[in-house]
Amino acid sequence: MLEGKVKWFNSEKGFGFIEVEGQDDVFVHFSAIQGEGFKTLEEGQAVSFEIVEGNRGPQAANVTKEA
């Protein structure tokens, strides 16, 4: 699992990017966010995740919000 911070997330469109120190930003789709209820992320929020190869390159999977 990697750790990063949410760079930005558009809850209307359901996607955004996660910043990872020393690496390129990683695309995140709302469907990759773990948990119940409305799936969104806040700018600057700490998250842990895995990287998988998507249709358009690397993207986040199994995203969990850090306490």
Rank of each mutant, 00 (worst) to 15 (best):
residue 1 M to Q: 13
residue 1 M to K: 14
residue 1 M to W: 12
residue 1 M to Y: 14
residue 1 M to S: 09
residue 1 M to G: 10
residue 1 M to V: 14
residue 2 L to A: 10
residue 2 L to D: 04
residue 2 L to P: 04
residue 2 L to G: 10
residue 2 L to K: 15
residue 2 L to M: 12
residue 3 E to M: 15
residue 3 E to I: 15
residue 3 E to Y: 15
residue 3 E to D: 12
residue 3 E to F: 15
residue 3 E to R: 15
residue 3 E to H: 15
residue 4 G to K: 01
residue 4 G to Y: 01
residue 4 G to A: 04
residue 4 G to E: 01
residue 5 K to L: 05
residue 5 K to T: 07
residue 5 K to M: 05
residue 5 K to Y: 07
residue 6 V to M: 04
residue 6 V to S: 02
residue 6 V to W: 01
residue 6 V to A: 03
residue 6 V to C: 04
residue 6 V to G: 02
residue 7 K to N: 03
residue 7 K to G: 05
residue 7 K to M: 03
residue 7 K to F: 03
residue 7 K to I: 07
residue 8 W to C: 04
residue 8 W to K: 04
residue 8 W to H: 04
residue 8 W to R: 04
residue 9 F to S: 02
residue 10 N to L: 07
residue 10 N to V: 06
residue 10 N to M: 07
residue 10 N to Y: 07
residue 11 S to Q: 14
residue 11 S to D: 07
residue 11 S to M: 11
residue 11 S to T: 13
residue 11 S to H: 15
residue 12 E to I: 10
residue 12 E to Y: 15
residue 12 E to C: 06
residue 12 E to F: 12
residue 12 E to S: 13
residue 13 K to M: 11
residue 13 K to N: 07
residue 13 K to Q: 08
residue 13 K to Y: 09
residue 13 K to D: 04
residue 14 G to V: 01
residue 14 G to F: 02
residue 14 G to C: 03
residue 14 G to N: 02
residue 14 G to A: 03
residue 15 F to S: 03
residue 15 F to P: 00
residue 15 F to C: 04
residue 15 F to E: 03
residue 15 F to N: 03
residue 15 F to A: 03
residue 15 F to V: 08
residue 15 F to L: 07
residue 16 G to C: 01
residue 16 G to L: 01
residue 16 G to A: 01
residue 16 G to F: 01
residue 16 G to N: 00
residue 16 G to V: 01
residue 16 G to W: 02
residue 16 G to D: 00
residue 17 F to T: 03
residue 17 F to R: 03
residue 17 F to G: 02
residue 17 F to Y: 09
residue 18 I to P: 00
residue 18 I to E: 00
residue 18 I to K: 00
residue 19 E to M: 12
residue 19 E to R: 12
residue 19 E to N: 09
residue 19 E to W: 14
residue 19 E to C: 06
residue 20 V to I: 10
residue 20 V to A: 08
residue 20 V to F: 07
residue 20 V to W: 10
residue 20 V to L: 14
residue 20 V to E: 02
residue 20 V to N: 07
residue 21 E to G: 11
residue 21 E to R: 13
residue 21 E to K: 14
residue 21 E to A: 14
residue 22 G to E: 07
residue 22 G to S: 08
residue 23 Q to Y: 13
residue 23 Q to V: 10
residue 23 Q to F: 12
residue 23 Q to W: 12
residue 23 Q to K: 12
residue 24 D to N: 13
residue 24 D to F: 10
residue 24 D to G: 14
residue 24 D to Y: 11
residue 24 D to P: 15
residue 24 D to Q: 14
residue 25 D to Y: 06
residue 25 D to L: 07
residue 25 D to M: 07
residue 25 D to P: 09
residue 25 D to N: 09
residue 25 D to S: 06
residue 26 V to E: 01
residue 26 V to S: 03
residue 27 F to N: 02
residue 27 F to S: 02
residue 27 F to H: 02
residue 28 V to E: 00
residue 28 V to N: 00
residue 28 V to Y: 03
residue 29 H to A: 03
residue 29 H to S: 04
residue 29 H to R: 04
residue 29 H to I: 05
residue 30 F to C: 05
residue 30 F to H: 11
residue 30 F to E: 05
residue 30 F to D: 03
residue 31 S to A: 10
residue 31 S to L: 08
residue 31 S to D: 07
residue 31 S to G: 09
residue 31 S to E: 06
residue 31 S to R: 09
residue 32 A to W: 04
residue 32 A to R: 04
residue 32 A to S: 12
residue 32 A to G: 12
residue 32 A to K: 06
residue 32 A to Q: 10
residue 33 I to A: 02
residue 33 I to R: 00
residue 33 I to E: 02
residue 33 I to H: 01
residue 33 I to D: 01
residue 33 I to L: 09
residue 33 I to Y: 02
residue 33 I to W: 03
residue 34 Q to V: 15
residue 34 Q to N: 14
residue 34 Q to I: 15
residue 34 Q to R: 12
residue 34 Q to G: 11
residue 35 G to T: 09
residue 35 G to R: 04
residue 35 G to C: 05
residue 35 G to E: 11
residue 36 E to L: 08
residue 36 E to N: 11
residue 36 E to V: 09
residue 36 E to G: 10
residue 36 E to S: 10
residue 36 E to Y: 06
residue 36 E to M: 09
residue 37 G to V: 06
residue 37 G to P: 07
residue 37 G to L: 05
residue 37 G to D: 10
residue 38 F to L: 09
residue 38 F to A: 07
residue 38 F to S: 09
residue 39 K to R: 14
residue 39 K to E: 05
residue 39 K to S: 06
residue 39 K to G: 06
residue 40 T to A: 10
residue 40 T to W: 10
residue 40 T to R: 11
residue 40 T to E: 09
residue 40 T to C: 06
residue 40 T to Q: 09
residue 40 T to Y: 11
residue 40 T to S: 12
residue 40 T to H: 13
residue 41 L to Y: 02
residue 41 L to D: 01
residue 41 L to N: 01
residue 41 L to F: 03
residue 41 L to V: 06
residue 41 L to T: 03
residue 41 L to Q: 01
residue 41 L to K: 00
residue 41 L to E: 01
residue 42 E to Y: 14
residue 42 E to C: 06
residue 42 E to L: 12
residue 42 E to S: 10
residue 42 E to N: 10
residue 43 E to W: 14
residue 43 E to A: 15
residue 43 E to Q: 14
residue 43 E to D: 13
residue 44 G to Q: 07
residue 44 G to K: 08
residue 44 G to N: 07
residue 45 Q to S: 10
residue 45 Q to N: 09
residue 46 A to W: 15
residue 46 A to H: 15
residue 46 A to Y: 15
residue 46 A to P: 13
residue 46 A to L: 13
residue 46 A to D: 08
residue 47 V to N: 00
residue 47 V to G: 00
residue 48 S to M: 11
residue 48 S to W: 13
residue 48 S to E: 09
residue 48 S to A: 12
residue 48 S to R: 13
residue 49 F to Y: 05
residue 49 F to N: 00
residue 49 F to S: 00
residue 49 F to P: 00
residue 51 I to K: 08
residue 51 I to T: 07
residue 51 I to G: 02
residue 52 V to E: 08
residue 52 V to S: 10
residue 52 V to L: 10
residue 52 V to H: 10
residue 52 V to M: 12
residue 52 V to Y: 11
residue 52 V to T: 10
residue 53 E to M: 13
residue 53 E to V: 10
residue 53 E to I: 14
residue 53 E to K: 14
residue 53 E to H: 11
residue 53 E to F: 15
residue 54 G to L: 09
residue 54 G to M: 08
residue 54 G to W: 08
residue 54 G to F: 08
residue 54 G to T: 13
residue 54 G to A: 11
residue 54 G to C: 04
residue 54 G to D: 08
residue 55 N to S: 14
residue 55 N to E: 13
residue 56 R to I: 09
residue 56 R to V: 09
residue 56 R to G: 11
residue 56 R to D: 09
residue 56 R to W: 14
residue 56 R to Q: 14
residue 56 R to A: 14
residue 56 R to C: 05
residue 57 G to S: 06
residue 57 G to E: 03
residue 58 P to K: 12
residue 58 P to A: 13
residue 58 P to N: 09
residue 58 P to M: 10
residue 59 Q to W: 07
residue 59 Q to G: 04
residue 59 Q to F: 08
residue 60 A to G: 05
residue 60 A to E: 01
residue 60 A to D: 00
residue 60 A to C: 04
residue 60 A to H: 01
residue 61 A to P: 01
residue 61 A to D: 08
residue 61 A to Q: 11
residue 61 A to Y: 09
residue 61 A to M: 11
residue 62 N to Q: 10
residue 62 N to K: 14
residue 62 N to I: 07
residue 62 N to E: 05
residue 62 N to Y: 07
residue 63 V to N: 01
residue 63 V to S: 01
residue 63 V to E: 00
residue 64 T to N: 13
residue 64 T to L: 14
residue 64 T to G: 09
residue 64 T to I: 11
residue 65 K to F: 12
residue 65 K to V: 12
residue 65 K to E: 07
residue 66 E to F: 13
residue 66 E to S: 15
residue 66 E to G: 15
residue 66 E to M: 15
residue 66 E to I: 15
residue 66 E to W: 13
residue 67 A to S: 12
residue 67 A to H: 13
residue 67 A to E: 10
residue 67 A to N: 14
